[in-house]
Amino acid sequence: MTEATFTTGKGAQAPDPAAAPRDIRVWDPLVRLIHWSVAAGVFVNAAVTDPEKQPHELVGYAILALVLLRLVWGLMGPRPARFTSFPPNPLAALRHLWGLFHGARGVHLSHNPAGALMVYNLWATLIGMGATGIMMTTPRYFGIEWVEEAHEALFAWLMLSVALHIAGVLLDTALTRVNLVRAMLDGRKRLPPQGPAG
């Protein structure tokens, strides 16, 4: 009924079953800084800046740079931040969602399999937005309709993804009782007392 994926390594302390509740470090400061900076940048470019003006471009470059930095971190950062801790696996994601609705309360010390897919989707979408955005500033693609349309379609997809991401975080938090928003703020997942046995 319960499954727990405890990853040992630099980022995660070995869970002590006797101690409850347990605080486990999952997100290092850089992961958290990048997460909230990208979120803020997306909000600013979606709601504040004029897409035809320079600030929109500068914020876009910053978001792209942060995503690329996160990808580098995925290769060499602390264990929970690494790609190897959350490989893209659609089947596992489905199994995780199925389990969530059927009583499984697994806690993952990186992204859960569904969250992992969302993370890769968000990165790919942001990189696509950055790429099409930069293209529009070059003489070769300036004023070319399909580039603009791709940028806009990716934006619509990004907004849908962000909504799903937030819904997923809230759902997982409600069902597993592990506050994921807090974990992204202070870096720690606080496992409930009668939490999943490791």
Binding site: P139, F142, G143, I144, E145
Partner: peptide, 22 residues
Amino acid sequence: RKLDTEDGMIEVYAVMGDKMAE
């Protein structure tokens, strides 16, 4: 590159070499 009407104005995207103009 592109010609359309925006807010009652005709908007044009045009390129000459490395120059881009809206």
